[in-house]
Simulated assay, not measured.
Amino acid sequence: MLAYIRGKLATVAMGWVVVEVQGIGYRLHIPAMTPLPGIGQEVKFHTHMVVREDGLQVYGFSREDQMECFLALLDVAGVGPKVALAVVSFLQPEALRLAVAGGDVNPLVKVPGVGKKTAQRILLELKDKLKGPFEGNDLSESAGPVSGQTAAAEEDAVAALLSLGYGQAEARQAVDKACKKTAPGDVSHIIKYALKELAPAK
């Protein structure tokens, strides 16, 4: 099993690269928008190998948490490497974790190849596997002025919503409403309530 590959970037194409290591070129499927150096420069990718009937495929990720999300998605029924790669290409790990924590299908259904049923299955099956980015960090119990913590938590919540594709105005409004329903400084709960505010009415 390949844990990672470090070598020189030899080829860059749409959705894949070739990394040369001691004269051997490894072709890696990578997420779209992966930041890359110039040809000939050193790169390192965390890797996962998928064995298929028609051969082996290696997937590479510049961020380890991105690969963790990819592997979690592969455990979801009906989600293969192609769809999992599309999800991590479209959503950064923080955004995916926020969507799962808030039970929000909206970011997922925007991913090419992911329908509503698949998105709902992803949310259901990853609920206990992907922890929210702020889980375990209870700002309301940490030291420091409560007012300062509250303001910082609100700004973090707004920034998280912006990363999911919401506009500045709607994100701010949702956070303001959420802050009236949860403890000051609790970022994870603010985000969860804000996502509920932003969810379309049924």
Rank of each mutant, 00 (worst) to 15 (best):
A201W: 04
V109M: 09
E42Y: 03
A10F: 12
L56E: 10
R121F: 08
V18H: 03
A32V: 13
A101N: 06
S188N: 10
S62F: 03
L162Q: 14
D104C: 08
V76M: 04
V87L: 06
M14N: 02
A101Y: 04
D128C: 01
P81N: 11
A13H: 09
L108M: 03
A84E: 05
A119R: 04
T118P: 02
V51C: 02
G185V: 10
L85V: 13
M14V: 03
V79T: 11
V51I: 14
K196H: 10
S188Q: 15
T150W: 00
V87C: 08
T34L: 03
M67H: 00
C179W: 00
P93W: 09
K117E: 06
L98V: 15
A86N: 09
G23N: 07
A159W: 05
A99T: 05
L108C: 08
Y193P: 01
L36C: 03
L28F: 03
V100D: 04
K177I: 12
V88M: 02
V146I: 14
L56W: 12
G115W: 07
V158S: 04
E154M: 15
H29E: 07
K44T: 14
M67G: 05
L71I: 12
Q57N: 02
V109L: 08
R63M: 14
A72P: 02
A151M: 09
K8S: 12
D138T: 12
C179A: 15
K116Q: 11
A194F: 06
G136T: 14
S62Q: 09
Q173E: 15
A178K: 00
V12E: 04
R27W: 00
C69L: 05
A159T: 14
P200V: 02
P184G: 10
A159D: 12
P184A: 11
P133G: 12
E20H: 03
T118Q: 07
R97L: 02
K181A: 00
L139F: 12
I24V: 15
S163M: 11
T118K: 08
M1R: 09
G144S: 06
E154R: 15
K116R: 15
T47C: 15
V158L: 08
Q57S: 13
Y59D: 09
Y26D: 09
D104Q: 09
G136C: 07
L126H: 11
S142I: 13
L73Y: 08
K116L: 11
G23R: 00
A101G: 04
K196V: 05
I122M: 15
G40C: 10
R97Q: 14
A99M: 01
L56H: 10
S142T: 15
N106S: 14
L91I: 02
L162M: 13
G38S: 13
E42G: 06
F61D: 14
V87S: 13
S140F: 13
G148W: 01
P35I: 01
Q120P: 05
L124V: 10
D186K: 10
Q92W: 00
L139P: 05
L126S: 07
A160V: 10
A160F: 05
F61S: 10
P133E: 11
A183Y: 01
K44W: 00
K202V: 12
Q22M: 06
V187F: 06
V175Q: 04
